[in-house]
Nucleic acid binder design. Structure first.
Lengths: 104, 104
DNA sequence: ATATTAGGCAGGCAAATACCTGCATGTCAA
DNA sequence: TTGACATGCAGGTATTTGCCTGCCTAATAT
């Protein structure tokens, strides 16, 4: 997994919206996704390309349509490698702050 | 929580590195953090400002030093609102794909 | 067969981003 | 008090990003 691509992909609200849309109904076409986006089709295409490069979305061609499927695996890996690590610090934050304010 | 600020903040590798550094040792000064970054001090400052605006880092002044503390709460909220939601789709992906390829 | 529809390709532009340098301020220590 | 050190402030620039328009191809429908 390319963590940088995943984080960059998630860094844009339009792309998170796309993932949301696919979460509501998986396998939507480009056109269907565009209907919910308020931007030109080509702009949406570029966002979907970024999501695909990050492996967050997979596509399948069916006739002249392109179907989009969400892939949650990279998100889980991001969580495992990044979020959990920082969560374990949670309880110690206030303690650290206090110690520092007291001049250690 | 401003989800957009958090995601944007996490979208840069330098800022993730900063969080990593603070995870190793909380409460580091700007100078200490810079020593591990290979960029000008002012660049690091800008990254830290973004992390602070996203509430991922809190700072305390002690004399002429500025101490930085990681705040894992927004990360947990991001996980709750975003990652878990998509994880629940995991098992259905292959099923959806199969269905679509068969022409539904 | 031809019109319509779904999507791809190429290029162009303005704003945001991630760097930088130079100078100013405030704190500590000799 | 004066020099060294930690950080803040103010631009300046090159690259990336997100959006667009215009045209092209391929598949379906009439």
């Amino acid at each position: 997994m390319d963590a940088d691509k995943v984080f960059k992909a998630l860094g844009d609200p339009t792309r998170r919206r796309l993932l949301d849309l696919l979460c509501e109904r998986n396998g939507q076409t480009l056109g269907e996704l565009c209907d919910n986006l308020d931007m030109a089709r080509q702009s949406a295409t570029q966002h979907l390309e970024i999501l695909e490069a990050a492996n967050l979305v997979s596509t399948v061609k069916r006739g002249r349509e392109k179907l989009h499927f969400i892939n949650p695996v990279p998100l889980h890996e991001v969580y495992e490698r990044w979020v959990r690590k920082f969560e374990s610090q949670r309880l110690s934050l206030l303690h650290d702050l206090k110690k520092e304010l007291e001049g250690e």
